[in-house]
Design a protein around this nucleic acid. Sequence first.
DNA 1: ATAGGGTTAG
Length: 848
Amino acid sequence: MAFLAVTTTPSPKFPSFKPSRAKKFTPTRLTKLQEDAKNHEISYESYFLRISSLCKEGQLRQAVKLLSAMELKNLQVGPEIYGELLQGCLTERALFTGQQIHARIVKNGDFFSRDEYIETKLVIFYSKCDVSEVGNRLFRRLRVQNAFSWAAIIGLHCRMGYSEEALLGFLEMQKSGVLPDNFVAPNALKACGALRWIGFGKGVHGYVVKMGFGGCVFVASSLVDMYGKCGVLEDARKVFDAILDRNVVAWNTMIVSYVQNGISEAAIDMFYNMRVEGIEPTRVTVSSFLSASANMGALQEGKQGHAIAVVGGLGLDKILGSSIINFYSKVGLIQDAELVFGRIPKKDVVTWNLLISGYVQFGQVDKALSMCQLMMLDNLRFDSVTLASLLSASADTSDLNLGKEGHCYCIRNNLESDVVVASSIVDMYAKCERIDYARQVFNSTINKDIVLWNTMLAANAEIGESREALKLFYQMQLESVIPNVISWNSVILGFLRNGLVNEAKDLFLQMRSSDIQPNLITWTTLISGLAHNACANEAISVFAQMQVAGIKPNTVSIVSALSACSDVAALHYGRAIHGYATRHDILLSVHIATSLVDMYAKCGIIDQAKWVFDMILNKTLPLYNAMICAYALHGQALEALELFKQLEVEGMEPDNITLTGLLSACCHAKLVNEGLELFNHMVSKLHMKPTMEHYSCVINLLSRCGDFDEAMRLILTMPCKPDAHILGSLIAACRDFPEIELGDYLSKHLLKLEPDNPGNYVALSNAHAASGRWDEVSYVRDLMKQKGLRKVPGCSWVQIGGELHVFVAGDKSHPKIGDIYTTLALLGTEMRFTGYEHMFGDSEILFS
DNA sequence: ATAGGGTTAG
């Protein structure tokens, strides 16, 4: 029973003195006591007061010195002095000093270390310093677990993210007969919010009301926060409205709830209401307001928020600074973001990440990379967010080496198990055309979330692996991940990229009857996919359906619809879309103008195309290209060349498309000198490498003008093998002149060169058809049949008398069919569709 | 009691 004897040591004599009395000392009495202490014998009381005030001022070293002085003089030190010292260490979060005090307490024997007040203080101290092992151990050894220690330990669990433990503590506390007070309730509510346990939260709400804490702003604000975190904004608002004296925190909590639930408008509204009530915003207010502004892309509001922070003298800490940077980079004002970045005194990873992701988002990969280097020089390590941005940059630029470096960094630093990072890695490999690597990373990631599934789905859809995409779509559902709009959209895209139009339409119908409704991107995907698969008329009708469904078309959908109109020369619909764009003030978009130029040109109205072209002030290269190709289509080579001059005057660099347009314009107009001059200019002055199309235009031009020698010379000197198209056009020209011998030679050569390439046979038959030699066409087709070659879709046409004969090989829905409509449009409106006929087993569309 | 960053679809 020796140890019992220790615990029952007779208590030393202490002055009967309670810390609560300290509050009654007035400042004058305090100074008097301090003077006494200097001159005369220092009383216990004044030691206590001196230590207490030093602790409150944060002068911990001085306070500890006094404690040592007391110990030297063999003065008895009571629990209240240790308590004050611990409180001082607590507010200063001075863990080391606190541990020293703890050591002295233990050294002084069980009377001190087992004092209820001291024990509780120690639990609170270690809990607040987030030393959970010690805090928990001391708490478990407590003989009396009072409301204070319970609050400390529940708060500790809360801060460490052990929300379940916090709530268990809340229950256990009640079970042991200690009633949770208005200090514990906020922590319990915070845990409910973190766990999204609305049921438990409501229980706490009921308890709070029963106990009469409902009027406490702290508790009410926590309730607002809890309901907000659980997504029940109506209840959050009800609690908020019932608070009688709302302080800034209450307002902030409500604003934050709206922001976190994506209701930015309401958050902004709240902010203005708060200002009307004359509540001064804090950094928390402004940074939440800026989040809302950033999410809405509300330029004016965000700038106002920044101004309020400056005018209100709110210091630029890293969180407020980050919010400002986030806002500026989200609205694209990267330079302003840079400026603010430079003014933040203490930056952390988040600050750097924001600027880096801003750069990545606006395509400034170089700046993002140099930022990463500077970040390393600042002794900061990359985290998963940095890597996600870096990997996304590698994906955008298809930089496989950079991407691999990023992947390796993730492996070395254990970041690859983060789903977000895994998604970025998968996306990076997919965009760098290494779907095999993407698949490997995808398979080895344990916890797949919807974004990761969608990333893999999109990767397969992009390359038309529709089977694989559909498989993933079912597989994710088997693993209880419910597809969202993006998943559906990707599967539809996969079908369309694979040319499976019916399957795509089918899935779209399924989607419309499911819980998930098509959004703008679904409609756009479908319209553009139909247009690309030669279903122009359907594309146009889907575009109309989309408006019926109440979805406002954007630039991409309008451009796709216009391209569909171009394909079938649907002037009527094209004009309607033009009108729509004008009414909605989106005509200024260069992309739409470019499509309009193309559409009007292909519908035969070159003047209208020029009108649209002239209307755009800041012309881009694609716009010039569209107009040049429009002139080429209409055989107006001189105008095209004039435009080329204008383009060079404006300091633009022509690209391959520009040159193709110009050369084909020359070719149509048989401007042989201009064409050759252009070709030489392109090679020697612009240092451009001619493509097969460029050679094709020039060789076609030469042969159409009868210069077969020069054409052959070019064929022999070109760095790549001539394709079927080039030889085909040459053969066609041979028939026209006639250069029968050369033509026959080339024909045989073409078939000898690549006897198994069906494209060559098609080219040949097209060439024969163009010169009206039907027997030859028939012969070539027979040859194909003998060789068992599948027909390659394609078409050709020829005008004989008043009739236009159009030959369509294979499927009538082949994209090439669009050319027929364009040709018809160019020929004028007299041409009338008269029906299909069959010739050589293929369809022939007759017009007259 | 309240605040900041990242990944997927046309």
